[in-house]
Amino acid sequence: MSTTTQAGTSSVKTLYEGAECFQVAGDTIASAWPDLEPFVFKWVTVSDGKLQPQDVFKLISEGLMTALVIHTEGEIHIVALTEFVQYPQAKTLRLVGFAGKNPLLTLKFMPAVEDWARANGCDELETFTTHRAKALMERMGFEDAPFVYMRKCLFNLH
């Protein structure tokens, strides 16, 4: 990660062996983007096509989404894209997507995400995932919740 990437970000928590988690928000995304884009591209290529890297850049720059970055000595390991969801009875941090060099490092990343969520008034974390990631999500302490089924709108009912 370049020194310009770190400018204006805030350290969330030191995790292990010198690793740190930083928030990259709207005012710092332009300088951080060259370092983050490969990670964003990695997860959008396996997503359902609702977001492209340029969409993520725009959402972060507008303050609607945040990137959390775990790195050691300038080497990025994991990038998590997050957004806040305010339900009537709870505030939730939604993990929109995450990618990294080693998915098992995500296990070490989760305490920092939880700390950041709590610091921002969240009661819980949520994410949508594929069946392939189910075991990893359970290892991170996520509980199996109702499935989300999607269907494209095919018919004009009017």
Rank of each mutant, 00 (worst) to 15 (best):
M1L: 07
S2P: 02
T4G: 01
T5P: 00
Q6A: 09
Q6L: 15
A7C: 06
A7P: 03
T9G: 09
S10V: 14
S11P: 05
T14Y: 00
T14F: 02
Y16I: 12
A19L: 04
C21A: 15
C21L: 10
C21F: 00
F22M: 10
A25N: 05
D27K: 08
T28E: 12
W33Q: 09
E37N: 11
K42N: 05
W43V: 13
V44T: 14
T45K: 10
V46F: 06
Q52V: 15
P53L: 14
D55E: 09
D55W: 08
K58R: 10
E62L: 10
L64V: 03
L64M: 05
T66N: 06
L68H: 01
L68P: 05
E75H: 06
H77D: 03
I78G: 01
T82G: 03
Q86D: 15
P88G: 09
P88H: 04
P88F: 08
L95Y: 00
L95H: 02
F98H: 15
A99F: 00
A99Y: 00
K101Q: 03
N102G: 05
N102C: 11
P103H: 10
P103I: 10
T106A: 06
M110W: 00
P111N: 03
A112V: 02
E114Y: 01
E114H: 02
W116G: 13
R118I: 14
A119G: 04
G121H: 04
G121S: 07
C122A: 13
D123L: 02
E124G: 07
L125K: 01
E126K: 05
H131D: 11
R132D: 05
R132F: 06
A133K: 05
K134E: 12
M137F: 07
E138G: 08
E138I: 11
F142M: 03
E143N: 03
P146M: 13
F147N: 07
V148G: 04
